[in-house]
Each structure stands twice: as structure tokens, then as C-alpha cells.
Amino acid sequence: MKRDRSKLVLGAVAYDAKVVTIWDGFLRWFEERSLPFDYVLYTNYERQVEGLFLGEHHVSWNSPLAWLQAERLAASERRVARAIAMRDTDQDLRSAILVRKDSAVNTIADLRDKRIGVGAWDSPQATILPMLHLAENGLDPERDAKIVHHDVLVGKHGDHIGGERDAVKALLAGTIDAACVLDANVLGFTRDGTVASGALRTLAVTEPFDHCNFTIVDGDDAPAGSIAKFTELLFSQDYSDPAVRPLMDLEGLKAWKPGRVERYAPLARAIDRFRTIEPWLKARTETTA
């Protein structure tokens, strides 16, 4: 069999049914602008990272953790992964550690021996980064506290906010003493009625970090010029253009930005500290060696 190499192929994780709507919309939009385009969906980011390296697709729409997985897998193969674009809303996120308004917990040290609710174990924003924040501020979360996971859709790297919502509900119900959520959800859970206004208090906030990016790896076999065309078209998307605004609303951005990788530093520190991806990386490098 000869592979069809006429199109730029994107990989995305199907964390929600709307992912199909989004990428079908982008497909049409790219094709109308003379970029032959297709996409493949994965059920989890690990499979997607593997797919990128196996040449199943050319550009991955990666979570921050998947980005680091790709970056390190590339390094092990003497290849280079690059982040080529991201949403404006992927930049400078923070996570908050919430407690109940009347809680006796006023400092991170007060969380000693307490139950700390986090999201899915592979969620950067709801689990890994808040745990790093605790660890770097004197509380080893695994040793000094009880971590309660709310594992919704593992493999999706926390893209689905169900885990965070469950953690907040558990906090309100009193079955845990603190909950870790993304800054936007601190607001969102109040607006959608999950949390009564003023019922929770922000105990701590992580340093800023970046979220998803489009990742490529050198040595791909994307059609010549197609990746440059892909980013050029993305950067041309204008939120005031009604033809593309619905897609941008679905994908949750107002403008695309060039990729940057400095703000993945906290997550890189965290996965070194917690050895989050070590078994996965080891298994991949053994099989590819």
C-alpha cells in the first residue's frame, strides 16, 4: 500500500464530542483556503504522541503534558519537537487551591494531614501543578497530606473539567478539605451555580503556566510548505470575521499566537519531581530502541 501524502494531517484527542465539530469546521475552512487538510482523533494523549512519532499525523494538538512527552521522546531519538502555535487563552494560566470559607486552613502548612482534592492524575492544571506548588512551598503532598483523585477521563490530561467539578463538589460536601482547580473554573463554577458565591476561599495560586500547543517534530513527511501554510492561515484568523468566529468560539480563543515553551517550565519541574511520565517514556524508548 502507498500512503496518501497529499494532505497535512492533524492529530487531536477526542475529549468531547464537539472535537469532531471543531475539526470538521477547520477542515472545511482550510480546504477553502487551498490547504489540503485532514485530521485523526485519538482517545488519549499518549496514543497521540506515539502517532506523531510513527508518522500517523504531522501536527499534534497537544496538552501541556503531551507537549513534554513529545519533547522528551524527541530528545531520546535525537529529534526536535517544536511548538508552532497556541491560543491566546493558552497563555499565562494559573491554578488555585480552594478551601471552604470558614475553613481553619489559612496557610499551605495548615494542609498537613488534610485531604486535598485534585482532578485526573494526568491533569496539569488540576493535579500536577498545584501539587508542585505545595511541594515547593514546604508540603510534600504525597507524604504530608492525603491526595484524593477525581479521575474523570484519564488520558485526556484534564481537558474534561468533570474531575475539577467533582473535586469542588466534594469540597463543598466536606469530604475533602481543599480542591485544586484552574483559575477560569474558579469563576466558572460560581457562574454556573456549582458553587455559591463566597462559599469558597482561595488559599494559594500557582505561578503562571501555558496550556495547549500545536506540536511538530522534525523529520516529518508533511507536504512541502503545508506546515508554514497551516500557521499562516491560523494567524490570519480574525475574531471579527463571522466565517471563522464560530470555530474560534468553539475552540475558546480570540487570536492564535506563535508557540512559546518557556512557560512549560513549571510542569517540566513537576514531572521531574513526581516522575509523572517516566514509566511511559521508558516503555516507549525501549520499544523504539
Binding site: D88, Q91, D92, R94, D183, V186, L187, T202, A255
Partner: peptide, 16 residues
Amino acid sequence: HPDLPLQLSVFAREGA
């Protein structure tokens, strides 16, 4: 509001 700085950064990010 104690969360105002955090809320403002979310507001600014989401509204560009």
C-alpha cells in the same frame, strides 16, 4: 474582593 487579581487575569485572557 480577595480573588480580584486572579479573576481579572482570567477576564483579560478570555476577552483578549
